[in-house]
Nucleic acid binder design. Structure first.
Lengths: 334, 334
DNA sequence: TTGAAAGCGCTAACAA
DNA sequence: TTGTTAGCGCTTTCAA
């Protein structure tokens, strides 16, 4: 494997000169540079980023920590789209991406900062962490630059990107209200997600704005899974037959609620309107197709990566970014 | 950031001893070891993998090269499931995963081996490459250990994992034949995929086994996309109204064909049976739910990673692994 | 059982 | 414009 030493020898100059030439410094004779470049190409040289990282104390590497990237959880491709966005931005800006995963127990033994420091990543993006995840506390305590996705914690070295979940939920509920619904249920996600609190807030605000009473009995938890949401839906529909619409804090849960409606003998959307959240891939294909609040998952990742790199290159401080949502009207609500 | 030097100083020993203690060598006094370990923990030490990699010439890092991981392509989560499998195995065996992406033009400028050597990955997994991808030739020429997914190239340093695509396609077509179909169309993927050739072969063999004529007119290309498949389906159905079944070489294409059937006024499965391939997430949710040939995408990734690491650790030579498929009967064919 | 010293491939003061 | 030298944090002979 060719090193700058080899090039130096072949060109009859010092390694310093080679390093300078290769890195585009101005203080090297144009002739020498050309010669060095030629030889480098001839010898099929690639720089050793390990060596470079060691001396520069920068690896041009971003770590991404995703929870729940395992056999069962690929049902919504939320994670994948975020990852695609991160990947796109990172490669545009000439960084590399290393994937940490927290699926195995093995890695739980390592602390967050251990994970990061071992790999000498310049910064980290966290996605899918629960609000009570032990890693999270560490993130804030450590001074490793970090962007969180959908977790509103910020400091000198940590920022986050999220969507406007309050407004998103509001949009969904307002849409139902405008269609004449008065008794609107909510199947929310679990409490360990920040977005759950926000979406609950949006739900309540929309009702209040319209002069409707918030009824705690109409609110159930679906734990972000299809199965739990189905149970929650069944419960809600049985105990409160006056419900004509249910807003779900995720599409997957909306799918579960629709199942429960069918089981109870209600047709969607004729007898029960259902609105989801996320606009996952399945939303357009399920029957009926899901009316939902879309969020741009690719952008979530892309912007997180972009802000992180800005931060690393000192182009900006830790940023807080909020993306917009959009109501997608399909056929599950009317 | 703590280094072994700091530990050495604190423990009153040499860095050599610290290194040996930390790496579990036997030739270090138990007392000294304990002392060193304690201090390391106290100082919150993490080894610098860059430095280690530099001297060891091993990074314990696997690169994964995926093509088409971008904004539009997240429609089938094939890639994501493979990635999840790779990730799972890699973290179990205590390696790290770096993601190369070939989406941007920028990286096309770098050759495959440049990409790998710069990052000093110990091995690579390639997924989603077309058969005429320029990278592919390099893979074989270079001696970087590599596992391919769904591309049957092997050598001393490269192996692959794939499913039995001939048999898979056969299973689909046999199922149709058993249901009484005689005029069976094929919407295949593009020619740049190895699997296309295999699935075509399976299609033909199944027909021949049953004593049915292969009719070239019944075969069209859907280019692995929903849109192209819809066009192909429309063409096929208009020109050959005698077709009662179409086998599609991917689920996404099956979705397209079903659309075309609806457009032409044919109901699925009453008037046209459709079978897909892959068993992607959507398959179970589309209407009608897709009868399809399932392949275990997670395992595809997991096994590739596992074989690669075996190879790196010299537990085995480059392997060739073939996974089984399974016919999943749903409602799009009868 | 321990330490001194060399070196992995690279960058960066400093000097010339 | 170029070279000398030191050093990033680690592993590994070799010698004690």
């Amino acid at each position: 494997m060719t090193t700058i030493k080899d090039i130096a020898k072949a060109a009859g100059v010092s390694v310093t000169t080679v390093s300078r030439a290769l890195n585009g410094y101005s203080d090297v004779n144009e002739k020498t540079r050309r010669k060095i470049m030629d030889i480098a190409k001839q010898l099929n040289y690639s720089p050793n980023t390990l060596a470079r990282g060691l001396v520069m104390k920068k690896s041009r590497t971003i770590g991404m920590l995703v929870s729940g990237m395992n056999r069962v959880s690929s049902k919504d491709n939320f994670t994948f789209e975020v990852l695609s966005g991160v990947n796109e931005c990172i490669s545009e800006r000439d960084y590399d991406l290393v994937l940490f995963s927290t699926t195995t127990t093995k890695q739980r033994e390592k602390t967050y900062s251990q994970l990061c420091r071992e790999r000498r990543v310049d910064g980290v993006i966290l996605q899918g962490m629960k609000i009570d995840d032990p890693y999270l506390k560490e993130v804030v305590e450590s001074d490793i630059p970090c962007m969180l996705i959908d977790i509103p914690i910020s400091s000198k070295s940590v920022g986050y990107v999220t969507t406007d979940n309050v407004l998103g939920a509001k949009r969904a509920v307002r849409h139902l209200i405008q269609s004449g619904h008065k008794n609107i249920g909510l199947v929310n996600g679990h409490d360990q997600a920040y977005v759950s609190k926000q979406r609950l807030k949006g739900y309540m605000e929309a009702l209040q704005e319209a002069g409707l009473q918030v009824n705690g009995q109409y609110i159930a938890s679906g734990d972000f899974t299809e199965e739990k949401a189905e149970e929650a839906g069944t419960m809600l529909l049985k105990e409160h037959p006056e419900l004509t619409a249910i807003f779900c804090a995720s599409d997957l849960m909306a799918l579960g609620v629709i199942k429960s409606a069918k089981a109870v003998g209600l047709s969607v959307p004729e007898q029960l309107s259902v609105i989801g959240y996320d606009n996952i891939l399945l939303a357009a294909y399920s029957s009926p197709p899901l009316t939902t609040i879309a969020q741009n998952k690719f952008d979530l990742g892309y912007k997180a990566a972009n802000a992180l790199i800005d931060m690393l290159e000192e182009k900006s401080d830790a940023q807080v970014i909020t993306l917009e949502t959009e109501l997608i009207i399909r056929e599950s609500a009317k």
